[in-house]
Simulated assay, not measured.
Amino acid sequence: MSPVRSRRGSPDAYDFEGTGDEARDWLDKAYGTDLRLSGEMGTIRHGRTDHGDVAVDHVDLDATLRFDAEPMSVLVVVDMLDGVVEYTRDGRTDQARDGDSVVSAGWQMPFTGQGAHYELRATAFTGDALTQAVRDVAPGRTADDLRFTSYVPRTPAAGARWRAIVDELASTFPGDESPIGRQDAVRLLGHTLLETFPNTVVAETSMGEVRRDSRDASPATVRRAVQVIEEEAGQDLSLARLADRCGVTPRALQYAFRRHLNCTPLAYLRRVRLDLVRQSLRDGSASTVGDVASRYGFHNPGRFASDYRQVFGENPAATLARSTP
């Protein structure tokens, strides 16, 4: 596959496009709760790809909305594609904008917030998916034991890792013809969720338990590799070095990524680095596009700019022009 793909998750067509009460009713039914939406109800577009225990939504709102929602039966992680949204739950308020990820709907908790004219991707986990991930990390525990101590990624690189994995799985998720593959994909997403957003389960569990492996080309190998990539994305990471850090052969690492993410380890690394470049351009920590591109190993300006446009839908210079110091 190509190392990059066009703008994250944007569907060719939506399941719903409408305004007013019709839009309110659609979103309430889609998320199984009373969102109590208010404000200027412009056009709302919503699309969903349902994978059973995990669903990926794309929402585009040409509207100014406030919400005061009842608890959901799913946990939702939002990746912002454009605009700004504010979420308050469990006494904590987080503002997410283009390039951010945030747990928007805490597990079985009400939430409030507001936003105007924004676009996002939302990944929803059922209780069964969360329980499976928690049990893998801490046998004997369930989703009821899961408490998040923060609703934003613990590091910028952790956020980049999360988005890169959702990028890959959103378009390559195994279907009904591959129940084992689908279960592995759900577990990989669940493990990545627990390792991205600070929580009590991972904090109380040794990393040896989190990363235990049954065979070289397993989801655990992918989890180990993406953890190394998160920690060393700005360093010189060859395939051989990455495999050595994971305790497997390069061939086993390649096979594991092909099997579970449908990409190569280096294509995934490139995706994480592109995300980190975008964060630096957006938050004002980069003085020039060339400097931050070189920092993350992009030494061919033409190829870098092309890859960046394919993933984010704009030139890197345009992102830098909107930066906030």
Results as ranks from 00 to 15, higher is better:
Asp128Val: 05
Ala129Trp: 06
Val134Asn: 06
Asp136Val: 03
Arg141Gly: 08
Asp144Tyr: 04
Asp144Ser: 05
Asp145Thr: 06
Leu146Phe: 02
Leu146Gly: 03
Thr149Ser: 15
Thr149Asn: 14
Tyr151Val: 09
Val152Glu: 00
Arg154Met: 15
Arg161Asn: 07
Trp162Thr: 02
Trp162Asn: 02
Trp162Ala: 01
Arg163Asn: 00
Arg163Tyr: 07
Val166His: 02
Phe173Asn: 03
Phe173Ser: 05
Pro174Glu: 12
Asp176Ser: 13
Asp176Pro: 14
Ser178Tyr: 12
Pro179Ile: 00
Pro179His: 09
Ile180Gly: 10
Gly181Ala: 07
Arg182Glu: 12
Ala185Glu: 06
Ala185Thr: 07
Ala185Phe: 06
Val186Cys: 09
Leu189Pro: 06
Leu189Phe: 08
Leu193Trp: 01
Leu194Pro: 00
Phe197Thr: 00
Pro198Glu: 10
Val201Leu: 09
Val202Gly: 08
Glu204Cys: 11
Glu204Tyr: 03
Thr205Leu: 11
Thr205Tyr: 01
Ser206Asp: 14
Glu209Gly: 09
Val210Asp: 04
Arg211Pro: 07
Arg212His: 13
Arg212Ala: 09
Arg212Lys: 13
Arg215Thr: 09
Arg215Phe: 15
Asp216Val: 08
Pro219Ala: 05
Pro219Gly: 05
Ala220Met: 08
Thr221Ala: 15
Val222Arg: 00
Val222Glu: 06
Arg223Leu: 13
Arg223Ile: 08
Arg223His: 04
Ala225Tyr: 07
Val226Gln: 06
Val226Asn: 03
Gln227Ala: 14
Val228Leu: 05
Ile229Val: 01
Ile229Gln: 10
Glu230Gln: 05
